[in-house]
């Protein structure tokens, strides 16, 4: 129990940010017309590729002799970037189609 309280005490800022971010996410998405559900889903999907930042950190922090970390890090960067680039590109492509008809 003490461990838990100590944990909350030392990470209180993180916990604040987490909770506020949850509410922010809910508010930002709340009133979205159904028309945009598909692009929004793929856009959010691209955003979740932010995990690639972690993958890059893994590689930067690897010893050049540490083939295990480098290999897994390399694959993680490839997959993460694929998620980011592919996700944003396909979202843009979908939205481009909506745009054309605005005239």
């Amino acid at each position: 129990m003490n461990g838990l309280l100590e944990f909350i005490g030392t990470n209180i800022e993180m916990i604040y940010i987490l909770i506020l971010a949850v509410f922010l996410g809910v508010e930002v998405i709340k009133h979205i017309p159904a028309v945009l559900h598909t692009p929004l889903m793929s856009g959010a999907n691209a955003l979740s590729g932010v995990v690639v930042v972690g993958a890059i950190l893994v590689m930067l922090n690897s010893d050049p002799e540490d083939y295990f970390s480098l290999t897994l890090g390399f694959i993680a960067v490839v997959l993460g970037i694929l998620n980011v680039v592919g996700g944003f590109a396909v979202t843009g492509r979908m939205l481009q189609m909506f745009k054309k008809k605005d005239k």
Partner: peptide, 11 residues
């Protein structure tokens, strides 16, 4: 990463 991830999570 923290905020980006949580945004996607709650959205």
């Amino acid at each position: 990463m923290l905020i980006g991830g949580i945004l996607v999570g709650s959205a």
